[in-house]
Design a protein around this nucleic acid. Structure first.
Lengths: 226, 226
DNA sequence: AAGGCTCTTCAGGATTTCCTCAAAATTCAA
DNA sequence: TTGAATTTTGAGGAAATCCTGAAGAGCCTT
């Protein structure tokens, strides 16, 4: 799950990043307006954390841009306490949530998590797929209530599969979703093979079926019907 | 499904091509105006990706050309962010969708897929032909709800047949649509024969009729009435 | 610094699909 | 009816794709 942090205070940006990272999110940061615009148009994010009081006041343009492209990304606005309440009130309607500095990182994380749940998972915090139960808060996966220990990439992969069940997913899409763009994979899908293999093994060992069907020459499909 | 990429930046053109390839499209590229014009007048494409900001600004001429020939091809325009918004707005009406650089390859692919669905499949993502049901996302084919396992080429072939039902299709056209122009087949259609044979066999074994009629000296016709 | 965990790379082998080829069958036209 | 062109078919090898285990690289914790 990818989060973009748009915040010019480097120290703050980094601590947010570190914290969310430990909470299992893949974070990217943008320290200025230009970088932020580029990243937004280039990539999809599950959630965007936006400091509305960017120097130059262009935070609002960013918000407008996001709305114009009607991206489905969740947006969490953070701002200094003393900024103009009214403007922010207006902006608030465009965003999904709002937080004034200073704040506890744990609160930020909680809100990010809430936004993502609301946006992507219909307000629930667990996904079920046949015998599999995936808890978004605990970041755990269970088969028949028995815990399966997955690494981060495996968890991401499984989450991506489940949210695209029954669709054939190309390896290009997988690579892009799990690694972003800082990966020049050209014609090398070795690591995908490996992660798929490991995920399969763990699910099987945990007592689940092999939901991951390989579709030769096309990609993978996550489904329960044979 | 054939896609033509008209884009002068070779690197971009190639990564688009690679990605769409992994998503199961047959891609051809044109790096300049002249090549593009030639290809367009020579071949049919399911979708055309057009960089409107070609050097020389002839992207617009191309669009006009396409409209004049009222080809049914779907058109997706890509352009640099800073190009003249108004002109583009005008052009927008002629095209089916519009995307500003830089963009995410998965987003491009999603739009291409949407255009094709809208243009060719009435917005649906599944096709029905008599007893046959073809799902574009799952990439599956069913006869009376029973799954038939097809290879990539067989699937492509069937999709091509269904979208040209009741028309006689030449082997040249088949070759062009399934292999693009990077295949010098001279006068050898053996591989088409083989794939037709295999497709027929699988459909029959799956309990379907033999919809594929051979038209001696002409090609094939996909139809249900005898 | 050492150990553990995760991620990546690599090489091999297994599997699946694709293409080639030649012989048999079919169709068409004279 | 006969012969030439075209299509169908099966078999087998070539090529592409996928899987696997093991080893290396990187990072974090202790």
């Amino acid at each position: 799950m990818k989060v973009l942090i748009i915040e010019d205070e480097k120290a703050l940006s980094e601590s947010i990043s570190a914290y969310l990272n430990s909470e299992h999110y893949t974070c990217e940061t943008a320290l200025d307006f230009k970088t932020a615009m580029e990243k937004i148009s280039l990539y999809d994010y599950t959630c965007i954390i936006l400091d509305i009081t960017l120097p130059g006041g262009s935070g609002m343009d960013l918000l407008r841009e996001l709305k114009a492209n009607h991206k489905a990304d969740g947006i969490l606005i953070i701002s200094a306490r003393n900024s103009l309440e009214e403007k922010i009130l207006g902006l608030k309607s465009g965003a999904d949530d709002y937080l004034t500095k200073p704040f506890h990182l744990s609160e930020l994380a909680a809100r990010v998590s809430a936004i993502i749940r609301r946006k992507s998972f219909d307000g629930k915090n667990s996904l079920r797929f046949d015998e599999l139960q995936l808890d978004l808060l605990e970041k755990t996966v269970r088969v028949h209530n028995r815990l399966i220990d997955l690494t981060r990439k495996e968890y991401d992969l499984l989450l991506y599969f489940i949210s695209n069940k029954n669709k054939v997913i190309s390896k290009g899409a997988i690579a892009e979703h799990l690694w972003g763009d800082n990966m020049d994979m050209a014609d090398n899908y070795d690591f995908i093979y490996t992660h798929i293999k490991n995920l399969r093994k763990k699910l099987l060992q945990g007592g689940a079926q092999d939901y991951i069907k390989s579709v030769y020459g096309m990609g993978y499909k996550f489904s329960d019907h044979p």
